[in-house]
Design a protein around this nucleic acid. Structure first.
Length: 397
DNA sequence: GGACCTTTGAAGTTC
DNA sequence: GAACTTCAAAGGTCC
């Protein structure tokens, strides 16, 4: 994990982006005066990251309108502008910066690697026990883990939300609800799925009372074989329409089912595209996106993602560990469900070859990777930090 | 209509 | 094995 490799490097990487915000507010003046010293940048970063906390803590003082109206024309980051606006009333960030940003930022990144290496040691053998108020999910036993023990006593659900994916409950998993009226029925089977036919994965989930509900029956693997659902009976998030676009009226994020008119137009049903399991940051984004949007009244994902990226870096290692662990379980579940699947399946060439129209998917702009661009050594700087330039690759150096 | 933007992490590919 | 590339989400923007 690149971000974990370099102790303290991440904040440097983040600083890289902070420079763009130098026009903003009192922070910007501070930054100008001090020529972007480390502490100021850390301040700025932390204040950005804690912008949501500001909103939470000072909702009574800051109206959403105030936040939205200060979209800055001088810089690209709306978050800073928002922060400045909020801070014009009361800068809660600064307190938090002192308390958390300066003291913990460095430690977070230096310790992250070590900590994450430790995570499987105390979690692989048991349950995922972390409870996270904003991320209620089913506490899974370890059916996906080799030799994973299933402890009846520990097989608890912290918060069960009906209609939620067991691992990514942030998604409105309508199909997770046994009474969901629109369980897809015409999804083609994925080759290789038959291999699981003998695997009974039902009964993974258990209610807090420790009772297996009748609905567990529809976790039966056979359901998937008949309907395209995965063995748990839940349309796994990884299954997507070939278009790559979510069709929320027919799917939650997952199963591709064409609407009737479209299905009529299309003679041959398209095979569902199994998408990559979400990594920790993606899971975090999924959870926090709505929150950021609500707080910042932003909708542009690029800006949202910038904010989320900074907040991600500001999370404590414990907070991040929750998402790493969840992501690990997602991967394990994904592997369990689609053992023949490879990330390569979704690679460009594969997409091009398998494109029903044979239409070439125009690739994203040919990104000049920062590590190969001498002018923007962002990657190695973010990874190793300015103090460890000896570790930088040649182009970055 | 689809690529792009933007983020981090995982995994595949290349050298 | 390091470095590089692609994709995962998301929704506005642009061509």
């Amino acid at each position: 994990m690149p971000q974990l490799n370099g102790g303290g490097g991440d904040d440097l990487g983040a600083n890289d982006e902070m420079i763009a915000f130098k026009h903003e507010g009192d922070h910007e003046e501070k930054i100008r005066e001090s020529a972007y010293t480390e502490s100021d940048l850390a301040d700025l970063k932390s204040s950005l990251v804690n912008e949501s906390e500001i909103s939470q803590n000072s909702n009574s003082a800051v109206s959403p309108r105030q936040r939205i109206q200060v979209k800055c024309t001088l810089c690209v980051c709306v978050c800073v502008c928002v922060c400045v606006c909020v801070r014009g009333i009361k800068c809660v960030c600064d307190e938090q910066v002192i308390r958390r940003g300066q003291q913990e930022d460095q430690r977070i990144y230096t310790d992250k690697r070590e900590h994450l290496d430790d995570v499987p040691k105390h979690q692989d053998g048991g349950m995922y026990k972390a409870s996270y108020s904003g991320y209620p999910f089913l506490m899974l036993p370890e059916p996906y883990l080799p030799n994973g023990p299933v402890s009846p006593s520990s097989n608890k659900v912290s918060v069960v939300q009906q209609g939620m994916h067991p691992l990514t409950p942030l998604l409105p998993y309508d199909h997770f609800n046994p009474s969901a009226p629109h369980i897809p029925t015409d999804v083609s089977q994925k080759p290789g799925v038959h291999r699981h036919q003998s695997q009974e994965i039902s009964g993974f989930y258990q209610l807090p009372q420790g009772q297996i509900t009748p609905s567990m029956n529809w976790f039966s693997h056979s359901l998937m074989l008949q309907s395209g659902m995965h063995p748990t009976g839940i349309p796994h998030p990884a299954i997507m329409p070939p278009s790559g676009k979510q069709e929320h009226d027919q799917f939650d994020r997952n199963i591709y089912v064409k609407s009737h008119p479209e299905a009529k137009r299309e003679k041959e049903p398209k095979k569902p595209v199994i998408k990559k399991p979400l990594n920790a940051f993606m899971l975090y984004m999924k959870e926090m996106r709505a929150k950021v949007i609500a707080e910042c009244t932003l909708k542009e994902s690029a800006a949202i993602n910038q904010i989320l990226g900074r907040r991600w870096h500001a999370l404590t290692r414990e907070e991040q560990a929750k998402y790493y662990d969840l992501a690990r379980k997602e991967r394990q579940l994904h592997m369990q469900l689609y053992p023949s699947w490879s990330a390569r399946d979704n690679y460009r060439d594969h997409v091009l070859l398998s494109s029903p129209q044979g239409k070439k998917k125009r690739r994203k702009r040919d990104k000049q990777d920062s590590s190969t661009d001498p002018g923007s050594p962002k990657k190695c700087r973010a990874r190793f930090g300015l103090n460890q330039q000896t570790d930088w690759c040649g182009p970055c150096r």
